[in-house]
Amino acid sequence: MINMVLLMLLLASVYAIIRLDRLLTAVLLTSLFSVLVASIFMVLDAVDVAFTEAAVGAGVSTIFFLAALAIVGRQCKPTPRRKIIAPLIVVSATGCVLLYASLDMPRFGEPLAPVHQHVAPRYLNDSAAEVGPPNIVTSVLASYRGYDTFGEVGVVFTAFIGVLMLLGAGTRRTSIEPPTPTGAPKESMRKKVVLKEVADLVIAPVLIFALYVQWHGDFGPGGGFQAGVIFASGIFLYALIYGIEPAQRLLPPRRLAYFPAIGLLLYAAVGIISMLRGGNFLNYSVLVNDPLHGQHYGILAIELGVGITVAAVMINIFFSFSERSL
């Protein structure tokens, strides 16, 4: 029942996003869309995924969209009718193939579905003895499929390099100087007493919560990705309320630009140490004498690497966007 309601809301929000001419509203609706998707994941008991979707989809990516809008403007040109025909055909064809596939899909929630039968049982039954963390999702992401997660950190790092190449954050000679005198909207935001007070209340708990999510990821939902994003959103909030320059004084972009690489290298270093100790890349069991302890240290270290890279990349991208829009 609740699934149906959420799906209906999802459809409605997607339709509205497509139809809207006003980009600002559309962006806010994408945030709503992410919240709805996160709720669906929640209902499906995929707490870690829901957490990530809420933090990334509803939080950070909305802010990036808004920052982009601040550069390009809020209105979109109306699309001529003939231009929508080809995409419409592609989308309809895709939809038809998806519907066709749905005829043979395992029933929703089917316990005998192949995904529950083949690889998953070992994760569920043996991960506590082989890897350790009570949160099995962490075991899978950080250890069994740690190489994928390494690749994902690589993806985030690549995005950072791409943004840096195109927009160039932190490469200003004197980045602490106010870039342009048109900081007017930010100034006015600083004068909003309610906003400022609420922000003061929220920022510190957000940052501390990020640390909790970082270090508690092997027991509860969370981990480096979520923690990094939450930490970054705390900084965004600070920058939005107090302006970009105090935030950059706090985290100088030139130095911050090193951290994405440091996180990735930390992750890789764990893998290389295990290679030096005679195991394969990212085999944490050989890190120390006791395999379980090794897994534990390994996971903590790589999650830290993930957190550092993700947080630093997000803040860097935010800074380079806002340097442009100011």
């Binding site: 070992r122 250890s143 069994y144 499929r145 740690g146 190489y147 394969n280 990212l282 069991s285 050989v286």
Partner: peptide
């Protein structure tokens, strides 16, 4: 065949 993380396929990569 090289087992990433020391986990045998199909559990590991």
């Amino acid at each position: 065949s090289y087992h990433m993380g020391g986990w045998p396929p199909p559990w590991g990569i």
